[in-house]
Nucleic acid binder design. Structure first.
Length: 436
RNA sequence: GCCAGGGUGGUGUAGCCUGGUCAGCACAGGGGACUGUGGAUCCCCUAGCCCGGGUUCAAAUCCCGGCCCUGGCCCCA
């Protein structure tokens, strides 16, 4: 038996867990819909080339890539943004703008599993294509906040950074390996101050440069407190314009009523593949070793890279496997009810009795009651035992004697009280008892 | 890709250091005592040493490799 093992980094989701996931998905989906985003689903796999085009050849290392029987080199999607951008370029370039799409789907990355990281995982995300205005950034970030709120989570922050400012910053410092520097900055919270400074000097920074980096990563906190500091640090026109954009953004987010969850953190880089301006990520304090629970940003070049007419876009993705453990840890997901409300037990092996049981359970089901019928032929004692253990509130017992008089027995499992009910009236009776 | 610690019936575990007397326990599942009345009790049954190789008279136990799990690194689109 042990030869049939689960593939590394994948999971089986059992009924209870599925019920909880579905609850989370539904909360999030509802908000997405209210913001008038529409659901799309693209194929699970694409040509590997698509992902290489976006992120370069190295990503193949992190892809679930394979050749199919027709010799195509394919990869399971590592996220949805590439596929959605391809879909847009293929067929929606002339659609009215903005295009507002959302998805809830599984993604695949060939990485070593660890806390909150699997090889197959789910994301719920949106893409807003066709507006380069800060209003679009605000709309998406407000929805990002509202999505978490919809799941009951309140203790989290959305930290906003900016790639233009980071790039500008690397230029100011004259660092060759700007990507390496950003990676280091992204990791700032994991290192001690001494190690961090030592690593900075490894990039050839002098004391002045180190000071500047420390000043940058110190730009972290409430927008009204830290944005003025950013204005002092940056001098170029481009950077000034971007800071103005951030001011407008936080102003709009205030109008959306979500500023309570908004922080500025100019040290955020969020990967390096395609973000071009505002980037953001959500963090919820927890003891589970889980960091970011989702993130996104503006990517104005990707559609052009895919051969489309240059089109600005912005979006985010929520990591379901990171969000759910935190919600569970906080007790925010309601316990799913997996038991039926009524359990119908035929007594004996008589065919008429079995048919009557099926008739009763069918009638209940048609009336909208979650009902089950004994299917294993257990004797009445074991069947009641089973129903009791499941916590079923009402059982209908159907035996030959009652049936001869056109009646069945309804048993309240909590009190043990029983009463004979006309078979034709049993649905009505139970609806009444259940308060339906 | 790298590192650390793990893997014993469906689940949780004892045993491993110190090889044999070892495959035990609890829960769960099925049946019966009880052929029309539950969660109790008693009895019975099902079911396991992750896979492969090595050492040895003898391996769950020691060694090697693989797979998987948990976590860390890299990376995190």
């Amino acid at each position: 038996m042990k030869r049939l093992e689960k593939v590394k980094g994948t999971r089986d989701l059992l009924p209870e867990e599925m019920a909880k996931r579905r609850w989370v998905f539904e909360r999030i989906r509802e908000v997405f819909e209210r913001y008038n985003f529409h659901e799309v689903l693209t194929p699970t796999f694409e040509y590997t080339e698509l992902f290489k085009l976006r992120s370069g050849d190295e990503v193949v290392e992190q892809l679930y890539a394979f050749d199919d029987k027709g010799g195509r080199n394919l990869s399971l999607r590592p996220d949805m943004t590439s596929s959605v951008a391809r879909l847009y370029v293929n067929s929606f370039q002339n659609a009215p703008k903005p295009v507002k799409w959302y998805y809830i789907a599984n993604m695949f990355r060939y990485e070593e599993p660890q806390s909150g990281r699997f090889r197959e995982f789910w994301q719920a995300g949106v893409e807003l294509i066709g507006s380069d205005k800060v209003e679009a950034d605000a709309e998406v970030i407000a929805l990002f906040v509202e999505s978490y709120l919809a799941t009951g989570l309140e203790d989290f922050t959305v930290n906003i950074g900016d790639r233009i400012l980071l790039d500008e910053f690397a230029r100011m410092l004259g660092v060759e390996d700007d990507i390496g520097l950003m990676r280091l900055i992204d990791k700032k919270d994991k290192l001690s101050k001494e190690d961090f400074i030592g690593a900075l000097k490894g990039f050839g920074l002098n004391d002045d440069g180190v000071e500047k980096v420390l000043a940058l990563i110190g730009i972290k906190g409430r927008p009204d407190e830290v944005l003025p500091r950013a204005e002092e640090l940056f001098t170029s026109d481009e950077a000034k314009a971007e800071i103005k954009r951030l001011y407008e953004l936080v102003d709009l987010l205030d109008a959306y009523g979500v500023s309570r969850w908004i922080r500025i953190d100019l040290g955020i880089a969020r990967g390096f593949d395609y973000y071009t301006s505002i980037v953001f990520e959500a963090i919820a304090p927890n003891d589970l070793g889980i960091g970011s629970i989702g993130g996104g940003g503006r990517y104005d070049n990707l559609i052009g890279v895919f051969g489309g007419k240059p089109t600005p876009a912005t979006g985010f993705a929520i990591g379901i496997e990171r969000l759910i453990p935190i919600l569970e840890w906080k007790g925010l997901i309601p316990e799913p009810k997996l038991r039926p409300d009524v359990y119908v037990i035929p007594i004996g092996k008589d065919t008429e009795v079995k048919k009557a049981a099926v008739e009763v359970v069918s009638a209940l089901r048609r009336a909208g009651v979650k009902a089950d019928v004994e299917l294993t032929g257990r004797k009445i004692g074991k069947a009641l035992d089973y129903a009791g253990r499941l916590g079923v509130p009402y059982v209908v017992l159907i035996g030959k004697r009652d049936l001869a008089e056109g009646r069945v027995t309804v048993r309240d499992m909590e009190t043990g009280e029983q009463k004979a009910v006309e078979k034709e009236r049993v649905v009505e009776e139970l609806l009444d008892l259940l308060g339906l």
